[in-house]
């Protein structure tokens, strides 16, 4: 475990110094900070639209960070030859891959915590301190964090066998399909009038690709009056789904990476 932790903390140290990630983070933080100042909306719509907008900024920024962070993860280590000095030590390849993944998760945690901090600050400035409001507000970023851990696992998995550019588009496409088009593929599968081919495609996409849309939990925050049944159970279920999927992706990544020529 010491090896995994050492690689993870080093990966974190490197990630938080990468200029491209810092620029993306700063842009996200800047948008979150200035969005409440755009007072062009009515009082009611201001609150709902603003919440939705701020949470979307966090989600989008985090997704870009997760993809950019992970696509270079393994190829960079090979190109710079750091992998050789690490793998010539008593380090198994699975330990290396897990270390890189957990480093990415730690980096995402730090960066998302910064954005969430600014988000909370923006709300306090606008609405004053409310403890119940804070716990309600934090649900979405926490679920986004699980979503980003899943996206990072997708990126790390692809980085074991494709180039960074291909990985960027692959991971981006998986995320886009998993967030935006998941309901479309679900309806393809469940609609009785769908053709057999459409049903096969729908089943394939639903089975193979992670459903990132599960983690889009903004609605109860945007409309606090809406009561959702078994909300906590639902959160536990989708976290378990994420952990399971991450586990499958990492095992697949380890199997590919174990025989890869580096």
């Amino acid at each position: 475990m010491k090896q995994v932790w050492a690689i993870a903390t080093t990966t974190l140290g490197e990630a938080i110094r990468r200029r491209v990630l810092l620029v993306i983070l700063l842009v996200g933080v800047a948008f979150i900070a200035i969005a409440p100042g755009l007072g062009v909306l009515s009082a009611r719509s201001e609150t709902t639209v603003l919440r939705s907008m701020l949470l979307s900024i966090i989600q989008l920024t985090s997704a870009v960070i997760a993809v950019v962070l992970t696509v270079y993860m393994i190829p960079n280590e090979i190109e710079r030859r750091t992998i050789y000095t690490i793998l010539s030590k008593p380090v198994h390849r699975w330990q290396f891959l897990l270390g890189k993944y957990f480093g990415a998760v730690l980096a995402l945690m730090v960066m998302m915590a910064m954005m969430t901090g600014v988000l909370c600050l923006a709300f306090f400035v606008q609405q004053g301190y409310r403890a119940d409001g804070l716990t309600q507000l934090l649900r979405a970023p926490i679920m986004f964090f699980v979503q980003m851990c899943l996206l990072a696992a997708v990126g790390v998995f692809f980085s074991t066998f494709v180039t960074p550019l291909v990985n960027f588009f692959l991971s981006g496409a998986v995320y886009l399909v998993g967030t935006t088009f998941s309901s479309f593929f679900e309806s393809m599968l469940n609609n009785p009038s769908s053709s057999n081919i459409a049903k096969i495609i729908g089943r394939l996409v639903n089975t193979l690709l992670p459903n990132f849309a599960y983690y889009n939990v903004q609605n109860p925050l945007i409309n606090p009056t809406v009561v959702i049944q078994d909300e906590t159970q639902n959160y536990i279920k989708i976290v378990a789904y994420g952990v399971l999927y991450i586990g499958v992706l990492l095992v697949a990544g380890i199997l590919v990476f174990d025989r890869r020529e580096v």
Binding site: T10, G13, R81, T82, T85, K89, P90
Partner: peptide, 20 residues
């Protein structure tokens, strides 16, 4: 992996994490 405790490697033009 057992012999990796008794060997070491210095690659050609090595790179070390520059922030360290």
């Amino acid at each position: 992996i057992g012999i990796h405790r008794s060997i070491s490697y210095l690659p050609e033009k090595p790179y070390y994490y520059e922030h360290m």
